[in-house]
Amino acid sequence: MLLAIFHPSLALQKPPALNVLLKSVPDAASTYYIHDIALLPEARSGGAASEVVRKLISHARRAHLPNVSLVAVNGSTRFWERNSFQTLEDPQVNEKLASYDEQAKYMVYRFS
């Protein structure tokens, strides 16, 4: 069992605030934001999560968005790096990420 929550988002480097309802999806999105991917323990081996990430990236490419972004939490940074995401350092974004968890990183996958 897998759950993935993702949506077009208006601005790169502006992750959504925690616990705030998204009222609508913007027409002029500039990034494809991955909010969450969750797998049951029995589905976590064998590359299932990476396969989902590849499908989300493919979907974003077909939607003609220039990148995919996310906030890596709960020590997941290495997983996202293995899937070609890079940490985007920005003091203002980092300040906002403090509400996520102390290890949270804003990460971006850019289409080349």
Score class of each variant (00 low, 15 high):
L10W: 04
L18I: 12
A17M: 10
E51L: 11
K105C: 15
L56R: 01
H7E: 10
N19F: 07
Y33D: 11
V52L: 08
F111V: 01
A38P: 05
Q103R: 08
H35D: 15
L65T: 02
G46V: 01
R62V: 10
W80R: 04
E95T: 13
A60D: 00
P8V: 11
H35S: 14
V52I: 14
I57W: 08
K23Q: 11
Y106R: 13
G75F: 04
A104G: 03
P41F: 04
Q13L: 15
D36Q: 13
K105L: 10
A72L: 01
N74W: 10
Y106G: 13
S84F: 13
P16Y: 00
L70V: 00
E95L: 13
A4K: 03
V52K: 05
A49H: 02
K55R: 15
T31Q: 08
N67M: 07
S99G: 00
A38H: 01
V71K: 06
P16L: 04
L21I: 11
M107D: 02
G46S: 06
S112W: 13
G75K: 03
V68F: 04
L39C: 11
A98S: 12
Q92Y: 04
Y109T: 01
N94G: 02
V53S: 04
E51G: 11
E81D: 05
S58W: 12
L21A: 08
N67Q: 12
P26R: 07
